[in-house]
Simulated scan of single mutants.
Amino acid sequence: MSNENMDIEGNTADQIEIIYEDEYIVAINKEAGLLVHRSWLDKGETRFAMQLTRDAVGCHVFPVHRLDKPTSGVLLFAKSSAVARSLTEAFTERKVTKQYLAVVRGFMSEQGTVDYALSFKPDAIADKFANLDKPAQEAVTHWQSLAQIELPFAVSKKHATSRYSLVRLTPETGRKHQLRRHMRHVFHHIVGDTSHGDIRHTRFFRTHYDCTRMLLHAQTLALSHPVTGEPLVLKAGLDNQWMRILEEFSWEDSVEV
Rank of each mutant, 00 (worst) to 15 (best):
R181P: 08
H182C: 07
H182D: 02
H182W: 04
M183S: 06
R184M: 08
R184V: 08
V186W: 01
V186E: 01
V186R: 01
V186T: 05
F187Q: 01
H188Y: 03
H189L: 05
H189V: 08
H189A: 13
I190M: 11
I190G: 13
V191H: 06
V191G: 08
G192F: 13
G192A: 13
D193R: 12
T194S: 11
T194M: 11
T194H: 08
T194I: 12
S195A: 11
S195Y: 06
S195C: 07
S195I: 09
H196Q: 10
H196G: 07
G197M: 12
D198N: 09
I199C: 03
I199S: 05
I199D: 03
R200K: 14
R200S: 12
H201M: 14
H201T: 15
T202E: 03
T202N: 04
T202D: 04
R203A: 10
R203Y: 08
F205V: 13
T207L: 10
T207G: 03
H208Q: 14
Y209I: 14
Y209F: 15
Y209V: 15
D210M: 10
D210P: 09
C211H: 06
T212R: 06
R213T: 09
M214R: 09
L216M: 06
H217A: 05
T220K: 06
A222W: 05
L223F: 03
S224N: 03
H225F: 10
H225E: 06
P226E: 02
V227N: 05
V227D: 04
T228I: 12
G229D: 00
G229H: 02
E230M: 08
P231L: 03
P231V: 07
P231W: 01
L232K: 03
L232S: 04
L232V: 08
V233M: 05
V233Y: 02
V233K: 06
K235D: 09
K235Q: 11
K235R: 12
G237M: 07
N240W: 03
N240G: 15
Q241V: 15
Q241W: 13
M243A: 03
R244P: 01
R244K: 15
R244T: 13
L246K: 01
L246I: 00
L246Q: 00
E247R: 00
E247L: 00
E248Y: 00
F249W: 01
F249Q: 00
F249E: 00
S250F: 02
S250M: 04
E252D: 04
E252A: 06
D253E: 07
S254L: 03
S254F: 10
